[in-house]
Computed example of a mutant assay.
Amino acid sequence: MTAQRLLRALTEVIDSHNWAALPGLLHEEFSCHYVHTGETFGAQAWVRLNAEYPGFQHFILRDCVADGDRAVGRFHVTALGEKGLQHFEVASFITVRDELIVNMIEVWTDVDEVAPAGTRPG
């Protein structure tokens, strides 16, 4: 499977909460690194993290760019939290080996964050 198809399959599996199918997209040497927290997860821990994420709702692919064994997606993610529906944006960079995702790097941000004063144009 190409990197682009794997990223789209990953989107469908996560958005549909099909946690049993998620390991089938991951290489035995899979690792995921969260740049924003410094954490790195193996396949089993990453699947569990996703499956157990409190209030998770949707994982929507907004953009995808792929070349060879690499792809990057920009996603909009929603989850129900203590204050209602939360919105996040995430950039996911994947590398494919043997038609499975072997490496993933993710960068998450909370959409409700406000830029510091003096940093906005105009």
Rank of each mutant, 00 (worst) to 15 (best):
T109D: 07
I101E: 06
A3P: 00
A45L: 05
E29R: 09
F56Q: 02
R8F: 06
C64L: 14
G68K: 11
S16R: 12
G81C: 13
R62P: 01
N50W: 10
D69C: 05
A9Q: 14
V65Q: 03
A20P: 00
A79N: 15
R74W: 10
W108Q: 05
V13I: 13
S92Q: 14
T11C: 10
A51Y: 02
V96C: 12
G24M: 07
L49M: 10
P23F: 02
A117T: 02
P116Y: 08
E39G: 01
L25H: 09
L6Q: 14
Y53S: 06
E52Y: 03
I60A: 09
V35C: 02
Y34Q: 07
P121W: 15
L10V: 00
D15S: 07
V13K: 06
P116M: 11
G118R: 15
D15Q: 07
P116T: 07
R120M: 08
P116S: 08
D67P: 00
I101D: 04
G55S: 10
H76F: 10
L25R: 10
D98M: 02
V47A: 08
W46N: 14
T78L: 12
N103K: 14
E29A: 14
E52T: 12
S92C: 13
Q86V: 03
V65I: 13
G68Y: 12
L7N: 09
E106P: 02
D112P: 01
P23L: 02
V102W: 00
L25Y: 05
R120W: 09
V111N: 01
V35L: 13
V65W: 00
I105D: 07
G84I: 15
V107Y: 10
A21C: 02
T37K: 08
E106L: 05
A21F: 03
D15Y: 03
P121G: 13
